[in-house]
């Protein structure tokens, strides 16, 4: 059964007729031709398909496109502006935060969404006292916990954590975290 929807992907509007079973991930990859988000497990367990949906990081494999008519979607590709890499992209390159690269677009979008969450004062399971006022800060443990929805089967974690830490410390990841 088909439905007509509009998705705004990386700043560009797309009108599509989709089967109601189409996920946002499949709409992006198979219909719009944006292969930046990857299909890893297709069950919401690996995070390779992570995109920002109306500004928040989600698993695009578990969202039916029909339920998000008019939504704003940002992929890793869309984080780049005017052909310039996002600071989070650059930090992953500088810190060698990947091996095969398959999980990387999901990791990068997730990291950008995560810094926004930290900036908004959201606690995590690694936060000592959820009742406390103020920001949880961003220890390595906080990064590991907050990024646990993104698996890297090459186990590049030892470089992913410093890559995110560097981008966070240099303050640019947060500013550029919204929709392009």
């Amino acid at each position: 059964m088909d439905a007509e929807i509009t998705l705004r992907v990386d700043g560009e509007e797309h009108r599509l007729t989709v089967d109601t079973r189409t996920t946002i991930l499949d709409a992006l990859r198979e219909r719009i031709g944006n292969t930046s988000p990857k299909k890893g497990c297709d069950h919401g367990q690996c995070g390779a398909c992570t995109v920002l949906l109306d500004g928040r990081r989600v698993n695009s494999c578990l969202t039916f496109a029909v339920a998000h008519d008019g939504a704003e979607v940002t992929t890793s590709e869309g984080l780049a502006e005017n052909g310039e890499l996002h600071p989070m992209h650059r930090s992953f390159i500088e810190h060698d935060g990947y091996q095969c690269g398959y999980c990387t677009p999901g990791q990068i979008v997730s990291a950008v969404g995560m810094l926004e969450e930290v900036g908004n004062g959201w606690p995590s399971h690694a936060t000592e006292n959820v009742s406390a006022e103020g920001n949880a800060g961003l220890s390595d443990d906080e990064i590991r916990e907050r990024m646990s929805g993104n698996l890297c089967r090459c186990a590049a974690y030892a470089n992913i954590v410093p890559a995110i830490q560097y981008a966070a410390e240099h303050g640019e990841g947060v500013e550029r975290g919204g929709n392009a």
Partner: peptide
């Protein structure tokens, strides 16, 4: 999980939510 009232008056609920699933899933 991030709601101030829940964190201060019912912290077990915030802690339970934060121990479940991943950030991406909790956002949906």
């Amino acid at each position: 999980a991030a709601e101030r009232t829940i964190r201060s008056r019912y912290p077990a609920i915030s802690e339970a939510l934060l121990s479940g699933a991943s950030a991406q899933l909790r956002n949906m």
